[in-house]
Design a binder for these strands. Structure first.
Lengths: 208, 208
DNA sequence: CATGATTGGATAGTGATACTCTCCAATATT
DNA sequence: AATATTGGAGAGTATCACTATCCAATCATG
């Protein structure tokens, strides 16, 4: 399969496929001569994955590369690989400013939820940023709501964890892609559930 | 309060404040002369809100403007205003291609969850796109997982709905900002819950 | 084997986005 | 009166994700 066939298969312009090759998102084909390389199914699958990550998931090319690298070569330390993998996903967390208690809101939240607080984990910074943003916007999250959201998140996490593959390589792929790909699903479901609840509660006619 | 004081208060360059004025994200100050206008607390609050939306929430200036307009002047049809408001938030949904069953995955998912299916609602397209992306990437969502996620989303929605203000204007603000600002919180909590569950299940030492 | 198409590779260009800078004459401040 | 600041408009900048153009080296075809 030459590059034009690959591009056609993936529904992308050849120029874009070349771009992904250059950017290291797609592994090179097997070079058969100075001006020829052959591509296979693995390239088609990879392109689909790249499009999924850069499209609906909303990763930048840089972020997608970081994620794919971790999936391709997970370290032998599963915990830190998972941490780095999730850290590679947006949104970026707030920078830790001072050294003393850099993430006060996140720490308080996790304490209240009875969860481990590890300031080195990227999602802590994300949580801090999200809580601060809600405060700044004048809609702080009440402890009660936080508890509710936290419980829901823990339920889902426990479900997901039970289904995590044993093999480290597969575990990283499962976690990274599961995080990246299922988050938009969860958000869409939450929005639709709001919609559904609104219809049921208010009645379509009474508000429309 | 002149523009430089406002900028200082919000921690932004004057040029950026001018930019937001030009873009219609910030309402003009009260003009006291040809080259002077005075700004007040409402401008400070608005700037905070703008930064929250364009920062952690990740909206573009265009999207933020759309959201703010809806908050500022909600229509008299609450249902459709809420629909439009949520539609103004990213991610953008997939375009409805054919006319027959444009969102098959989303329809099936909502049927399975026993929820209303309204193809006009933006989140349906988002769900379709998210489900398709997961499939494309080779990690389709199982019906079981979908049910689990859907139940969690419904729980949260029901909680949120119970707390929705009665007054339409406040309801729109609550819903739009709640959607935009609380989503990042939920995602961060889910990631942290994964982390926490991993530590508890695997034990930090056994994987690190 | 001649000839036109395609390839990998490199460089440059494009359009969108979110600021950021510069300028200006008209005030404000001192 | 001298200096600083303002609102407003226009242009400039940096980044991003492609997209287009070139080129010499093959390939495919008659």
């Amino acid at each position: 399969m030459r590059i034009s066939a690959l591009a056609a298969e993936a529904g992308l312009p050849v120029a874009t496929v070349k771009f992904y090759l250059r950017e290291g998102l797609l592994h090179p084909g097997a070079a058969s001569s100075a001006t020829q390389a052959s591509y296979d199914d693995s390239h088609v699958r990879r392109l689909r994955l790249v499009r999924a990550l850069t499209g609906p998931v909303g990763l930048s090319v840089q972020q997608a590369r970081a994620v794919l690298q971790l999936v391709d070569e997970p370290g032998d330390d599963l915990y830190s690989t998972l941490g780095r993998a999730v850290g590679a996903l947006p949104p970026a967390g707030a920078e830790a400013a001072g050294d003393a208690d850099p993430y006060p809101r996140a720490r308080a939240a996790l304490d209240a939820l009875g969860q481990v607080y590890d300031p080195g984990f990227a999602a802590v910074a994300q949580l801090e940023g999200a809580l601060a943003a809600a405060e700044d916007a004048g809609m702080p999250i009440t402890p009660e709501r936080l508890a509710r959201y936290g419980r829901a998140a823990a339920d889902l996490a426990s479900y997901d964890l039970e289904r995590m593959p044993r093999e480290p390589r597969d575990a990283v792929e499962y976690t990274v892609l599961g995080t990246a790909l299922y988050e938009p699903v969860l958000l869409a479901l939450r929005r639709l559930a709001h919609q559904d609840a609104a219809v049921r509660r208010l009645g379509r006619s009474s508000v429309g």
